[in-house]
Amino acid sequence: MIQQIYPQVQHSYSYELNKDMHFAAAHFVPHEAAGKCQNIHGHTYFVNVTIGGDELDESGFLVNFQVLKKLVSGQFDHTLLNDHDQLFNEQNANDFPTTEVIARKIYELIQAHLDVLPNKPSCLQVFVRETPTSYVVYRPKQVRNHG
């Protein structure tokens, strides 16, 4: 993993967890303005997820790192992102597999998992690097402090 300083998100939680992950995947952007990106091509995506919370679970974790890796890398590694019909489609620009949308969809997957945990942590930020020179940060508008 590339050692990276990520943009910081302000919060009032006692705990902040960051998990770095990566996955290799192909995609294409189904719009004429995407230029060459309309063609199937691949990237090694580097992802950092920031999670905050005030309570640890019965194992002493805010969130289990292995679960986060399974939710992201385990689902997307060595796939064509466009084939993930439950997340991406070719009809709505908000669901095209662009880096921006990928970051938001990763947030949604992770937050859906966090919402069922008794300690109720919150996903604060998702950082997705698509190339050495291009990345996106997604932060939800409202961070839910459950404490």
Rank of each mutant, 00 (worst) to 15 (best):
C37Q: 11
C37M: 10
C37F: 12
C37D: 10
N39E: 10
I40A: 12
H41G: 04
G42L: 08
G42P: 09
H43K: 03
H43M: 00
T44L: 09
Y45K: 08
Y45L: 02
F46K: 10
V47L: 03
V47S: 03
V49L: 11
V49E: 04
V49Y: 04
V49I: 15
T50I: 04
G52H: 10
G53A: 02
G53C: 05
D54C: 02
D54G: 08
E55I: 06
E55C: 00
L56F: 03
L56K: 06
D57S: 03
D57W: 02
S59I: 00
S59F: 11
L62V: 01
L62T: 01
F65H: 06
Q66K: 14
V67S: 04
V67A: 05
L68F: 04
L68Q: 05
L68T: 01
K69Q: 07
K69D: 11
K70W: 06
L71W: 12
V72W: 08
V72R: 07
G74C: 06
Q75D: 07
T79P: 13
L81N: 09
H84V: 09
H84L: 05
Q86M: 14
F88M: 14
F88C: 12
A93F: 13
D95L: 15
P97V: 09
T98H: 13
T99Y: 02
T99W: 02
E100P: 04
V101S: 01
K105I: 13
K105Q: 10
I106F: 06
Y107H: 15
E108T: 10
L109C: 11
A112W: 06
L114H: 00
L114S: 04
D115I: 01
V116M: 10
V116Q: 15
